[in-house]
Design a protein around this nucleic acid. Structure first.
Lengths: 231, 231
DNA sequence: TCATACCGTAACAGATCCGTCATGACCGGC
DNA sequence: GCCGGTCATGACGGATCTGTTACGGTATGA
């Protein structure tokens, strides 16, 4: 199942091995890949062609990924950028987001992780801005009131469960990585090595089922979870 | 101090005594008042002139306030309406809001209660719609993220304190009634006869002060509270 | 088929949040 | 100036929310 449409992706990575690994993964997911080995090359390519997203290594010979990113953002280029970073401190993360990155993945990473985050940023940047509510098949998540309704009826969720569902709904039909959930729902940039996600997911499932909400939260082995609406 | 500008108010009330009481209160607050004793009369007046808000008794001889309100809303008339209701059950409240009322006050009421609610609905309907953040002098309340920042620094608040501050900020400079707070923050339509508001207000004040936020939450005796920004 | 890692869930414990109460200060009216 | 009501605040106890652990089930790959 390829819920996501084919994308044109520019991969900026000087390590040939890593570049090939990424290209293979993207290709398998049905995306068109263009490789660049340096910031200068990437800049030229981005001028000449239009990409749906850019996967950009933070460390590059010569012009670094951050330099390039800042330059692009300075020029008003809005293409979503997924930053690859070897360093994995909090400061790097902030610095990357400050420079205008839409998300980041710390090396080493699983290809699924990268794909999920890539799809997420493309979807996010293409979606109309900052909705205060998410609606899907009778399910209404009001982010301002922090209320979930199904067919008008309130479904009581705890704050964590609400956040969890929010992330699943933003990405409905596609897998959301365990790491993405930890990062966005808990603010963890590491794996706590407990079943915290599974536990809350279990509670969420129970409450949704008890309220008769026709959705399934599927586990995607070794990746994370996916929300599926029943027809 | 009249932070609010003078308003043109239509009061639809068949009881002459109550009408006079309301008119006197509005007049003292600097507003222009027009009285109508029946729904039919009110309808004619609303056609002929433009009002900033309408205070509408739910019970009227002949055409009830709800009938009139529904008719107006059906015609696309958007003037904010404050409903006066003798009955005070939950159903009436819902029914009133369903009919298109912006707020309601149960009889008997203090004139301050009515004024505060009146100003609130006028301000709300004139303000640009449904902001996801409220900013005021370096204070930023992000309603989606449920975060309060002062000069970029996070100020940790509990959910209830956040809601409380939200109501105060929406109405900055003007008094917010104790009843309004109970209704909007707690969902209470009655007074619990405890110092629940005072307690949370105290906690909120402490946290704001500890973070150096230059605002004062002033108690307005017999009315409620008011948020004041220090210059 | 078996071993292993992954996932699901119940049970427990701690932290946090919240409402109540008691006490004391303050304010306003008489 | 006194009295009564209003408001402020600290302390306490309970409810809720949350994270961990443990154990059982299930899928996957050798």
């Amino acid at each position: 199942m390829d819920g996501a449409p084919a994308l044109r992706i520019l991969v900026v990575e000087d390590d040939p091995e890593l570049a090939a690994f990424i290209a293979a993964g993207l290709d398998r997911a049905g995306h068109a890949v263009v490789l660049a080995g340096s910031g200068e090359e990437a800049d030229g390519l981005a001028d000449a062609r239009d990409f749906d997203a850019v996967i950009l290594d933070r460390m590059l010979p010569g012009m670094t990924g951050l330099d390039l990113l800042r330059q692009w953002r300075g020029q008003g280029r809005r293409t979503p950028v997924l930053l690859l970073t070897a360093l994995d401190g909090i400061d790097d993360r902030v610095e990357g987001l400050d420079a205008g990155a839409d998300d980041h993945v710390g090396k080493p990473f699983a290809i699924n992780e990268l794909l999920a985050r890539l799809h997420a940023i493309v979807r996010r940047t293409q979606a109309p801005e900052a909705a205060a509510r998410i609606e899907q098949g009778g399910l209404v998540l009001d982010l301002l009131r922090r209320q979930l309704r199904y067919k008008g009826r309130l479904v009581a969720l705890q704050p964590r469960e609400m956040r969890l569902l929010e992330e699943l709904m933003r990405q409905s039909g596609e897998a959301v990585t365990r790491a993405m959930l930890l990062e966005r729902v808990w603010g963890f940039t590491f794996d706590p090595q407990t079943s915290i996600v599974e536990t809350h997911m279990s509670r969420l499932r129970t409450k949704l089922a008890d309220s008769g909400v026709p959705v399934a939260i599927e586990a995607v082995r070794n990746v994370g979870y996916r929300l599926v609406l029943h027809e």
